[in-house]
Amino acid sequence: MDSNILWQQYFNSKEVNLKNQLIEKYIELVKIVAGRLYATYGNHLDFDDLVSFGIFGLIDAIDKFDPEKNVKFETYAQIRIRGAIIDQIRNMDWIPRSIRQKAKLIDDAISKLENSSKIESITDNMIAEETGMTVREIQNVMQQTSAYHVVSLEEKLIDATEENSLADLKSELPEERLINAEVKELLIKGIKELPDKEKQVITLYYYEELTYKEIGAILGVSESRVSQLHSKAISRIKYQLL
């Protein structure tokens, strides 16, 4: 059935079987969004779990979508789907308290080393000496917390998008402006003000969609160092959005 006809029939009747047809029609959109997020959260969750979370977002999008507002359903739905997945991931809170405590020690050690020695490239060995942890422990903590930092940032961006943009789609008009202009400006400003290596990591990770291993090979540093740079960059950017 033609999409426009299907939507029109659903809006007029709200029949469950028509809603199910819309869900089936756009399920691939859920898989696309879940696939992108799986690259980040795959160490903690199954792809099927992400799809399940995303389906709730799709259903919510179908329920709340208004065709009279000048925005494509696919654009609107992706925000709802992504938001639903991030929300579920946040609620799962998979990082043990002991790991969070170690991550705090590592962050404090990095800050101390940066402020005291002005060393551009802080090594895992330096952090190990400062914290009393082994290099393996540090690398393990970095790997476990890297996805958490991404969740935290994406959650804030989604919250800003939901609050500032989806509340009145008519005022935003083009789908390119679904993310509030002020949030975009702050995010761009935050990225521009990052130190060069952190800026490179953010660019390669989010825009080029490279893995830590691939980024490490390009920058000539270890995966744990990439994770470290990523975490520091996310913290700086989040501060710009507070």
Rank of each mutant, 00 (worst) to 15 (best):
K25N: 08
D63I: 09
V30M: 04
N43P: 01
L18S: 08
V30C: 09
E114Q: 10
S52L: 14
M133N: 11
L178G: 02
D124F: 09
R90T: 15
I5V: 13
K232F: 09
D124C: 10
D168E: 15
E15Q: 13
I23Y: 06
I32N: 15
V33Y: 01
E129L: 13
I218A: 10
T131R: 04
T131M: 08
D159T: 06
E214N: 07
Y10N: 03
T161E: 01
S121L: 05
G42M: 02
A217T: 08
N180M: 02
G42I: 02
V226L: 08
P195L: 05
P174M: 03
A217G: 07
I179S: 01
N43V: 06
S231Q: 11
N180G: 07
E15T: 12
N180F: 04
I32L: 14
E176V: 11
I59H: 12
N140Q: 13
L169M: 15
R97A: 12
V33L: 07
K213V: 14
S231W: 02
D93T: 11
M133L: 12
D196C: 06
L166A: 08
H44D: 06
T203D: 05
V30I: 11
V51Q: 00
R82E: 14
V51E: 04
R36Y: 09
T145Q: 08
S116R: 15
V183F: 03
I188W: 04
E24F: 14
D93A: 02
T75D: 12
L50A: 00
T134Y: 08
N43D: 02
K14W: 12
G35Q: 05
A61E: 07
L210H: 01
G57R: 11
K69T: 09
Y76K: 01
N70K: 07
K156V: 11
R82D: 00
L187T: 05
L157V: 07
S222V: 06
E15R: 13
Y205W: 07
K197A: 10
L153T: 06
Y10T: 03
E154K: 06
N180S: 06
E182M: 08
N70W: 01
G216P: 02
R36Q: 04
D63S: 14
I99F: 00
Q9F: 00
I5K: 05
T203C: 03
R225Q: 10
D66M: 07
I106N: 04
R225C: 05
S222T: 14
K102D: 13
H149A: 09
T75V: 11
Q200Y: 15
A217I: 13
L153C: 06
V151N: 13
L194R: 03
N4H: 11
D87R: 10
F53H: 08
F56K: 15
A167L: 11
N91T: 12
Q88C: 13
N17Q: 03
A109F: 01
D159P: 03
L229F: 15
D60A: 14
N4T: 09
T211S: 10
P96K: 03
R82S: 05
N180D: 15
V33N: 11
I127H: 07
Y26E: 07
N43K: 14
D66Y: 07
L204W: 04
L210F: 00
R82L: 12
F53V: 04
E130N: 12
I32G: 14
L157I: 14
D196H: 10
K213A: 14
R177G: 02
S146Y: 09
T211L: 04
I106G: 02
L45R: 09
H230P: 00
S13F: 04
Y26H: 05
L50Y: 00
D48N: 08
L219D: 04
E198I: 01
S152A: 14
